Simulated assay, not measured.
Amino acid sequence: MGLTYKKILVAVDGSKEAEWAFKKAIEITKRNNAKIILAHVIDTRSFAAMEAYNMTISDRAEAFASELTDRYRQEATASGITDIEIAVDYGSPKVKIPKDLAIKYDADLIICGATGLNTVERLLIGSVSEHITRSAPCDVLVVRTQKDA
């Protein structure tokens, strides 16, 4: 087993935490001369909460996903990374990232932000990063923002 990573999956959702994770992913991808997979999961559970599930919500979610991943792709390209893949999926991010996307893209490292949940939320549902850490088939790096430190 080598000590370099070949396929690095970074979870991006538009949050400040994900922004930090992405910046760290860029550094690690370049250092390892690896492929980067920009993964965004459209959380369909938020749609279910709205009774009349209408297309405009999903259209907006898709437009957001597309803009977000495009922006990150441009940033990755500008930093000199050439092997970039975009992975957009639907469902629960904490399930999709470790159980589906990491396997589908054969990731050997998942990078995600430490999600900012309050204590009560963390007790009830656990953070996305905790779930990913528990069920990932590969190494996981949870990146903390400066405010977390």
Rank of each mutant, 00 (worst) to 15 (best):
C138T: 03
T115F: 01
I103T: 15
E121T: 00
L124Y: 07
A149S: 12
I132E: 03
L141W: 00
D106M: 15
R73M: 12
H131Y: 12
E67R: 04
H131K: 06
S79R: 12
N118V: 07
K94R: 15
A61P: 06
D100Y: 05
V128E: 14
D89P: 07
S129K: 00
T145D: 08
D148S: 13
Y105E: 13
I132H: 00
G116R: 15
R134M: 00
G116V: 14
D89E: 14
P93Q: 11
D139P: 07
S127M: 09
V95T: 13
V88Y: 08
D100R: 09
H131T: 11
I110F: 01
R144L: 13
T115D: 01
K99A: 14
D106I: 12
K96L: 12
T77C: 08
R134T: 03
K94Q: 02
I84L: 10
D108T: 10
D100Q: 13
I81Y: 04
T145A: 02
D139T: 10
D70N: 15
K147L: 10
D83K: 01
I81R: 06
S135C: 13
T145Y: 00
I103H: 09
E85T: 06
A114Y: 14
K104M: 14
I86A: 03
I86T: 08
C112S: 10
Y105V: 10
K147G: 01
L68K: 07
Q74N: 13
P98I: 13
D83T: 07
A65D: 04
I84V: 14
K147P: 01
E130F: 07
E75I: 09
T77K: 14
R73E: 15
V95Q: 02
R144D: 04
V142L: 02
T119K: 15
D148W: 00
N118L: 06
K94Y: 12
N118K: 10
S66Y: 05
P98W: 15
R71I: 02
N118T: 07
P93I: 00
L124S: 02
N118Q: 04
I84T: 07
I97Q: 06
L109K: 09
K104W: 01
E121Y: 08
K99F: 15
N118Y: 04
V95D: 14
D100L: 15
R144H: 10
T69K: 06
L124D: 08
S129Y: 11
A149R: 12
A87S: 10
P137H: 14
T145P: 11
A76C: 02
I132Q: 03
H131P: 03
V142C: 04
V142T: 02
E75F: 07
G91K: 03
V88S: 08
D148F: 05
G116I: 12
A107M: 06
S129W: 00
P98K: 06
E121L: 08
A102G: 05
Y90S: 14
D70W: 15
I132W: 03
A63S: 14
T119G: 04
A136S: 03
K96Q: 15
L101H: 04
A149H: 09
L124M: 13
A78N: 09
T145E: 13
K94A: 07
L141A: 11
